[in-house]
Nucleic acid binder design. Structure first.
Lengths: 235, 235
DNA sequence: TTACGATAAAGTGTCGACACTTTCAATGGA
DNA sequence: TCCATTGAAAGTGTCGACACTTTATCGTAA
């Protein structure tokens, strides 16, 4: 449990770690726009550090697939294409389906109780119409995050939590995904937790796959209408 | 297609790239034993470079999950536990099953023909008893590698080819996996390719999952007998 | 005016040196 | 004899400087 935690801007033993967390947050939230070049001297000056730690932070961003680096040409924030977003959904369907099955087999009773409490909280927030503030931002991620943790497969946890989830968040910040699917998603979450609580791994996997597929199709619809009704925003 | 290629010791624009490839090979092949500490000054001296590029190479090895680094304590080659090996198999089953399905849908006819030719070659090698030299080492990897490439999902390709496959090779080098399963595996490979050639994604996924599951069970049996008949080699 | 080439600017890759942390060993005391 | 303390040695983290590559700019010639 010591790995795979979000490196927050504060508390980090090394400068490179701290700057990595800050840069990741800035990139994911769109403060450093996709496709923009990151100049090492400029960034180092902005954060008041040397180029050494900054380069290390950049390398970690590269391995997290948030920036692309090419020799002698420097680093650019990745550009988000709809194809890549759909690729991520396809992988998440397989991987989180697996995670749900494993979680149903191995998650502790206490963790399941916590999960149910989280869903109860979400239910309340949606009823009070707070969901636009919370659920669509982090609530959904919290849910998926916990199930993946519950799988107990460290490598699976690493792939999903260290890489794919940050990318998914980045997309969410880019296109402001105001989801009309919040209620449906909550319903699906409940079905998944029920299956896990009954230790029915097969059903949990099925429900998780169906849930992520529904999310993907929602995004596909949104992308389709977006490209037909208005211009793309790629310069 | 420019990414996800094995960085060979030669031809690499930057020193860090070259040393990364050399170190990865040394680690995967067991020349730098698992669990051993990697001293930056010592390694830099051995390769005749400065600590800067070496640190970059180490960082890339860490993101490939071949070494573990802890602040102020340095880097160690990962220790291979049987649990981790099985974790990898579980993930491969899900991910390569997905890859096989996508490959059945999207692989070009030419690529499928190449795949068939590769299998034909393997068949010949096994018949001539050369399989102990080739098949068990890289032939199996070649097969899986091509199908993953055929999926066309760049992120899936990255996860499997950049990370998991090197780890799998590392395990293979550690325990000298002389497989009595070569003939069975070839048979399973043929079934998978047949399904892909008939564009039957569902069947291709099923066969690939079954194939990897069989491999995993073979490893499990081997591990079980190993631990009961002889001492573990962990010091 | 446009195309080509040279020069300068900016940026990345690499290096050696210093500061701080960890580790180990020797010394002293209980 | 054993444990704690202290000092040195080794190692990692960080920094500034230099070399080489890429890019932009300017000047010249067609």
């Amino acid at each position: 449990m010591e790995a795979h935690v979000d490196v927050q801007p504060d508390e980090a033993s090394t400068i490179a770690d701290r700057v990595f967390g800050q840069l990741r947050q800035a990139i994911v939230e769109g403060n450093i726009p996709p496709g923009s070049k990151i100049s090492e001297p400029e960034m180092a000056a902005r954060y008041g550090i040397s180029r050494g730690p900054l380069r290390e932070a950049m390398r970690r961003l590269e391995s997290a697939n948030l920036v692309e680096r090419r020799p002698n040409l420097g680093a650019r924030v990745i550009t988000l294409s709809s194809e890549q977003l759909l690729e991520i959904y396809v992988i998440r369907e397989a991987l989180e389906g697996l995670a749900a099955r494993l979680a149903a087999e191995r998650m502790s009773a206490a963790a399941i109780a916590d999960l149910k409490a989280l869903l109860e909280q979400h239910r309340g927030e949606i009823a009070r119409e707070y969901w636009q503030a919370y659920f669509q931002k982090e609530g959904d991620m919290d849910f998926h995050y916990r199930i993946v943790q519950g799988s107990g497969n460290q490598r699976l946890i690493g792939i999903l939590c260290d890489d794919l989830y940050h990318l998914a968040r980045m997309y969410r910040c880019k296109f402001g995904m105001v989801s009309n699917r919040a209620r449906d998603a909550l319903k699906e979450h409940e079905l998944i937790v029920d299956a896990i609580a009954e230790r029915d791994g097969e059903l949990a996997e099925l429900m998780m796959r169906r849930h992520i597929r529904a999310s993907r199709r929602n995004v596909e619809r949104r992308l389709a209408t977006e490209t037909t009704t208005q211009q793309r925003t790629d310069p």
